[in-house]
Computed example of a mutant assay.
Amino acid sequence: MNDRPHSPIQDLRVNAVLARLQGARQRSAGGGPRGSFNSRDPHAYAEQGFSIHSEQGELIYLLCRGLRATRVAEFATSVGMSTLYFAAAIRDNGGGTVIGSEIVPAKVETAKRNLAEAGLADYAEIREGDARKTLRDLGGPVDFVLIDGWPGESGPSLARG
Rank of each mutant, 00 (worst) to 15 (best):
61 Y>F: 08
61 Y>C: 05
58 E>Y: 02
55 E>M: 04
38 N>G: 15
42 P>F: 08
74 E>N: 04
82 S>L: 06
82 S>Y: 00
58 E>I: 04
46 A>S: 14
76 A>I: 01
80 G>N: 05
69 A>G: 06
45 Y>C: 06
34 R>A: 13
34 R>S: 12
95 G>L: 11
93 N>C: 14
44 A>D: 15
59 L>S: 01
81 M>P: 01
70 T>D: 06
55 E>N: 07
78 S>M: 10
66 G>N: 12
68 R>A: 14
49 G>K: 02
35 G>P: 05
42 P>R: 07
48 Q>G: 03
57 G>K: 00
68 R>G: 15
78 S>Q: 08
71 R>V: 05
82 S>N: 12
42 P>I: 03
90 I>R: 00
73 A>T: 02
73 A>V: 10
44 A>C: 11
62 L>A: 08
37 F>I: 08
57 G>P: 09
92 D>T: 08
76 A>R: 01
77 T>S: 14
44 A>N: 11
63 L>T: 08
85 Y>E: 05
94 G>W: 10
62 L>K: 03
36 S>V: 12
88 A>Q: 08
48 Q>D: 12
94 G>T: 09
57 G>E: 02
77 T>L: 12
71 R>D: 08
71 R>T: 09
66 G>I: 06
69 A>R: 03
96 G>D: 05
54 S>H: 05
79 V>Q: 04
61 Y>Q: 02
77 T>D: 10
78 S>Y: 09
98 V>Y: 03
69 A>W: 07
65 R>H: 06
64 C>R: 00
36 S>I: 11
68 R>C: 09
40 R>N: 14
74 E>Q: 12
61 Y>W: 01
38 N>C: 09
82 S>T: 12
95 G>T: 12
71 R>G: 06
49 G>P: 06
83 T>P: 01
60 I>W: 00
86 F>D: 00
32 G>T: 11
62 L>D: 04
69 A>Q: 07
46 A>I: 02
79 V>F: 13
67 L>N: 02
87 A>S: 15
32 G>P: 12
54 S>T: 09
34 R>N: 13
56 Q>P: 04
61 Y>K: 01
94 G>A: 06
77 T>R: 05
75 F>W: 11
64 C>K: 00
98 V>C: 07
79 V>W: 03
85 Y>C: 05
62 L>T: 09
83 T>A: 15
86 F>T: 02
44 A>H: 14
33 P>T: 07
96 G>V: 14
85 Y>N: 01
61 Y>M: 05
78 S>A: 15
35 G>Y: 10
42 P>T: 10
87 A>K: 00
45 Y>V: 07
34 R>D: 09
90 I>N: 02
97 T>H: 08
96 G>L: 10
79 V>S: 04
93 N>M: 09
90 I>Y: 04
86 F>G: 00
45 Y>P: 08
